[in-house]
Design a protein around this nucleic acid. Sequence first.
DNA 1: CTGAAAGCGCTTACAG
DNA 2: CTGAAAGCGCTTACAG
Lengths: 354, 354
Amino acid sequence: MARKVSRRGGNIVTIHDVARHVGVSPMTVSRVINGEKNVREETRQKVMEAVEALNYTPNLAARSLASQDSSRIALIYSNPSMSFLSELLLGILEQSSQSGCQLTIESCDGPEGVADVLDKLKATGVDGVVLPPPLSDSSRVAKALKDMKLPFVGVATSRPSPDAPSVSVDDFKAAFAMTSRLIQLGHRRIGFIKGNPNSYYSQLRYEGYVAALAKAGLMAEETLVGQGYFTYRSGFDAAETLLVRADRPTAVFASNDDMAAGAVATAHRLGLDVPRDVTIVGFDDTSMASSVWPELTTVRQPISDMAALALKLLLDQIKTRRAGQTYAPVHEIRDFSIVERQSSAPLGEASTTE
Amino acid sequence: MARKVSRRGGNIVTIHDVARHVGVSPMTVSRVINGEKNVREETRQKVMEAVEALNYTPNLAARSLASQDSSRIALIYSNPSMSFLSELLLGILEQSSQSGCQLTIESCDGPEGVADVLDKLKATGVDGVVLPPPLSDSSRVAKALKDMKLPFVGVATSRPSPDAPSVSVDDFKAAFAMTSRLIQLGHRRIGFIKGNPNSYYSQLRYEGYVAALAKAGLMAEETLVGQGYFTYRSGFDAAETLLVRADRPTAVFASNDDMAAGAVATAHRLGLDVPRDVTIVGFDDTSMASSVWPELTTVRQPISDMAALALKLLLDQIKTRRAGQTYAPVHEIRDFSIVERQSSAPLGEASTTE
DNA sequence: CTGAAAGCGCTTACAG
DNA sequence: CTGAAAGCGCTTACAG
């Protein structure tokens, strides 16, 4: 009978095998694996070697059962840009497989739809929730979660809930930096495409743009600002209004990549070359930014990393709570960077790229 | 001490609680939950009610530990379209959270890079692998996996390995149907943008196009066929060659959505209206198809569902093997459909949409 | 710094 | 059709 045949195709290597191999108790092996302090250095070495030699990997199921530590985490998203979502997913998955937690994903229609999802999750049993924008910005959602006493974490939130941890980028500063860069390239008439007005981070990006203009002694002309909703289509439409004018801007800063990609499409349709006739830049650096042509100059937000970290913080929070301690929410700010690609150029300079 | 406080915020409800509530043994409850036959209908009812009433959910960790049934599944992908990947991820995640398996994702650079990933996975311990295209088409990858005796499943494969299950759509038939539809709309000069020549399904889509033309008594003109690589950029470039010509095609069938989106961008850049001046259609119906403007008419492949089913088949396979039985690979064919949106129109008809 | 005992919540294999 | 026993692989809590 092949009962002891492992799921890895060989024989199962358990903590007992390692223990026997080294000549210690399973307990000691457990301690080494979990990086606990009270183990003699020499013993630790030997155990490590045995783990290596036997190619041992802990059984996650056993571990979480024994430690009562298994967590079911739900990622609730609402109509974000798909490219944003994929980056996020990649990061979350990485982390969840490392942490050995069970991941569920649920979609809903905006903050209003969250209640239903929450009911469902309550029935199924979830230990924590990861909230990407725009949900992460909704105080309403935060309140609902708080009422349920369900731990959660916000990713890419500009207005983190005081009760929950969050991971984000300084949207104001990033937009300020990007706008400054455009000014440095010689642009003076710089358009802006806003994101969804309900999102606070959308607001912050706009304010960063205005502040950078002001610092350079420029005015934010209302006619150079278009209203978008973070979708390709909205960028496409908003850009049209900005670009058909005779005194069109020489650069357009769309506040996410999807809208920037839409703006590029519009520019092309209007017979404008990017970046020769108009510079167009985005925000996020999702896959969209480098799949479009010309590839977008954009503000890079390390979405995957941020998502991974967010999940980690959530798990910490859950652990702390289980231990009966109170959890002090951490608000992590990640660095952004400006990635220059082919969609931007100094003012008046002919496109020479390739 | 809050030791018995559940991860769900209330007290843990275990199989014993349910059993006590009904007045049966835990064993009986287990049987009901797992849908086994040998339970009296009346007992089953009562158990079900108790499960409902107590809001019981089985502990996945305990279950997989007891049944020795936990599975670690790796999704290995190589540079697919990001939008395709997200759809896939969504489906896989749905299923993995339902089946309670542990998911890992790994990326690599094409079939050549798989060896490294496999080594890594071998060390970590994995029970099965999900392979999306183009990896799912590579006999080399299939061989490597087979040599490792690692179960795998192909998603969206046109050339399924005889040793592994697969879930796909009939690419030939789908391309045939789409091309026929274009012909039906009055188009006679129909261009085609091929996908990566290494992919067999790319080949099949092309053959479907040619066959449909032939059936209508049309020739596949070589000058109407462009070479792409399934990327936005390649569609953008290939479309240029097709559309700058005076005798340009009136419709272009790009063999995936990313390329179709690129082709639309090119059309716009050349001052052509879509669909008034040229109809452009895609394949897959990823989020790209409906985020671009005009939204793409395309062949819908139910990617999420296919991925979910694929994972299920993989899990079945693993289970069967563990039971020591031999597994006969199933090759599932899903239905495609043609989704008509704004990027296509009858020949010569002015754009009247909206 | 290390170990023996008990138990996490479920299922398998056996007995009735 | 139903149940009592044993065990999955690990960790917690206690003892030394």
